Simulated assay, not measured.
Amino acid sequence: MENDFDKIINRKGTNSVKWDARKAFFGSDTALPMWVADMDFDHPDSIKQALHELIDHSILGYSLPSDQLIKSIAEWQKSRHQMTISEENLLFAPGVVGALGVCVQALTSPKEGVMIHDPVYTPFSSIVEHNGRTLYRSPLLIENGQYKMDLQNIEEMFKAHSIKLFLLSNPHNPGGRVWSKEELLELTALCVTYQVVLVSDEIHSDLVYSDSTIYSPVTLDDQYKEWVVTLHSATKTFNLAGTKLAFYIVYNEEIKNKLQFIQSQTEQGGVSTFGMTATEAAFSRSEGWQKALLTYLEENRQIVMDFFDKELPDVFYMKPESTYLFWFDASILNIDSMQLKQTFVDVGDIALNDGQSYGESSGQFMRLNFACPKSVLLDGLNRIKSVFESVR
C-alpha cells in the first residue's frame, strides 16, 4: 500500500551504505543505523512505475534530458520556490556534492578563499581543502535554541581575506534551521558588495515543516541572480540518492560558462537515465506522496522532541525546522568528542553521526536520522536514553 510509512523494509544485504556499512564505519553489525541521510521508506508508486517502464521499453544507452524532465523541474521550482527558470538556466550533475566541487573548481583559483558555516555538512569543508583552496569558517551563533548567522563576522572576514565563494546549506544540515528571509537578504547583499559568489545547496528545501517558510536567495532580489548559483535535487525528498541526479540553476551566463568548462574537463555533466526518469516522475507525479511524507516526518519530529523533553530533559537539542535530522548536545556525558560516536555504539548499540565531523564548534553534538518507521524510531530513542543513563 502506498504511503505506508510504518512498513518495515529489510535493507540488510542490499549493499545499503546505511545498513551494510555499519561494520566498516562503526565496528558493529548490530548497531541500529540512524545516521546517513536516507530514509527507510518505500518509494512512490509513480516513480517505481516510471522506472519499470524505462526498463521494459528502452535500451539503456546514452540519454538526453527530456522536455518533460525540464518542464517538471521548472514547474516544481516555480510552485514551491517562486523561481522562474528556463532550459538555459539549467545544468545537470550526478549529485549535489559533485556540483559543489565543480563550483569550487570553476569559480575560484588555488589558494583563494571559500567560506562555509561552522558547523555544516561535512563535504563542504573537505571539497574546499581537497581542491587546494583556503577554507574560512564562520561559526554559527546559538540564540533561542537555534543557529543564527554571525553576519558581522562574515563581513569582517570578507574584508580581511580574498574570499571568492560562499557555500551555504539552505536549509541547514545538520541543525535543521530554515534561515530567515532577513538573514538571507543580508548575507546575499554582503556577497554582492564584496563580489563573492553564493552557492546555495537547497537539496533539503522540500522537507520544510508547516511552522517554517523556506526562501531561496536568488528569488529575493533580481540583482542576486548575477551572484547566486542554486543547487537542487529530488533525491532527498523522494529518497532517490542511488539514482544520481542533481541540477544547477544559474542565471549569470559567465558563471554558467565557467561551470560548463569544468564539467567538460571532468566529465561531470553526464547524468543517469534512471536519475532523469525518477526525477521527472517525482516532480510531476508524486506530490501526494511528498505531502504524506511530510505529515509523517512531522509526527516523528514531535515524537523525538516529546521523548527528549520527558526522558532526557537536561539534554539540549535544536527543533528541526526542516530535514529529518535531529541535532542534540551530548556534552553532559563528559566524554571526549573523539569517543562520543563509539560510546553510543558500545553502550546503546546505535549508529549516529558525530558532531565533530561537521565543524570545530559542534564536537559534543550528535545527529539522529528520524526518517524511519515509528517502531524503529522508538527503539532508537530508547537506545539513546540507555547511553545517558549508563554513562552519567
Rank of each mutant, 00 (worst) to 15 (best):
N15Y: 13
S16Q: 07
D20Y: 15
A24F: 09
T30M: 04
A37R: 10
D40P: 02
S46I: 05
L60N: 02
Y62D: 01
H81K: 13
T84S: 14
N89K: 08
F92A: 10
V102F: 10
P110S: 13
P110V: 12
P119N: 02
S125G: 09
L135Y: 04
L141F: 09
L151F: 01
E156N: 15
F158T: 04
L167T: 03
P171I: 09
N173L: 11
P174T: 07
L187Q: 04
V197K: 04
V199Q: 00
S200F: 03
S205D: 00
Q223I: 11
H232I: 01
T235V: 09
K236P: 00
F238N: 02
T243G: 05
L245N: 07
Y248S: 01
Q263Y: 05
Q263S: 12
T266K: 15
Q268V: 05
G269Q: 11
G275N: 04
A282P: 05
S284R: 02
S284V: 11
R285E: 04
L293F: 02
Y296N: 05
L297M: 12
I303E: 13
F307V: 12
D309A: 14
D309N: 14
P320N: 14
L325E: 02
D336W: 04
L340N: 05
F365I: 05
P373I: 15
V376T: 11
K385S: 11
